[in-house]
Design a protein around this nucleic acid. Structure first.
Lengths: 147, 147
DNA sequence: CCGTAAACGGACATTGACGTCCGATTACTT
DNA sequence: AAGTAATCGGACGTCAATGTCCGTTTACGG
């Protein structure tokens, strides 16, 4: 349902959001989020292209959030990496149906709209601020790890 | 987001629901729903295994809904064919987090729960009963086709 | 200016979703 | 009994998502 890539992107973004300003290398992020390093690198590059993450090469380089955590919704990250495709026209390809969806596809699209809404409602800051016994992800620099 | 297979299964089920009792062959269903015949055959077999569709071989055979349309939710069909996998434990694989999800995954799972809810709320009968200018799918036996 | 630390980019490997093909099986009709 | 109409099941083909590898580029520090 939700792709691995989305899961990875969100973990990385959440990790970065936990210590904004702080620059983190792919290896650090991969360790903390349990994502395959090489693949994570690709995912981060996507986020860089979409201007949500900033990168610096060379010694002391790494990745940082390009915006403060309260200005980054989950939805944006999802859309950057594996967009939710709304149903805008009849998937049967019949132009005759025009823009009006049949009851089946209307319901499917409504469900997708709910998803978007749910994702748009949370910012990274909000996720980190939530009082809970389970720190977002694990092995967070700010957290006493798990357990 | 939603797999092709789900899309196909729902089209087929909706088509069958439009004329309950009526037995339909794969070819008929494929024509009406614009789904690749051979693949549709596989999808229907999944629905048969899950007891949502009944099949008969040989002359005059084909597929029918195994239940009246008002007793088949969209959700059941989705689950039969490409289940929505709820997040029940920390995807990072750390047992220490136990059953409690971190704020990030709690939100993701909530979104999935919304999906389930949306899908559970519609039966095939309801979809067919909805007054609309766009008949479900197209080329329906009961419909004056599209346009 | 050289070595080292990092991201970047492209090529390749693997796997599962999607799709095709065809023989085997079941059932109806004459 | 033979022919025909249909599903069933397994083997295979294709492609995009996922994941790996490595050389190239950029930047910092001595």
């Amino acid at each position: 349902m939700l792709s691995q890539t989305v899961e990875y992107a969100l973990r990385a973004a959440t990790y970065l959001a936990a210590t904004p300003e702080q620059s983190r290398t792919v290896d650090q992020i991969a360790d903390a989020t349990h994502v395959p390093v090489a693949y994570l690198s690709k995912v981060l590059q996507q986020l860089v292209r979409e201007k949500m993450v900033a990168s610096r090469r060379g010694t002391g380089g790494g990745f940082t959030l390009a915006r403060p955590p309260h200005k980054l919704h989950i939805l944006e990250i999802v859309q950057a990496v594996d967009p939710i495709e709304r149903i805008t026209t009849c998937p049967l390809g019949l132009a005759a149906h025009g823009k009006r969806l049949c009851p089946l596809h209307r319901r499917l699209d409504n469900a997708l709209a709910e998803m978007e809404k749910a994702f748009a409602a949370s910012t990274l800051a909000e996720i980190l601020a939530e009082p809970t016994k389970s720190v977002p992800l694990c092995n967070f620099p700010t957290a006493a790890t798990c357990g």
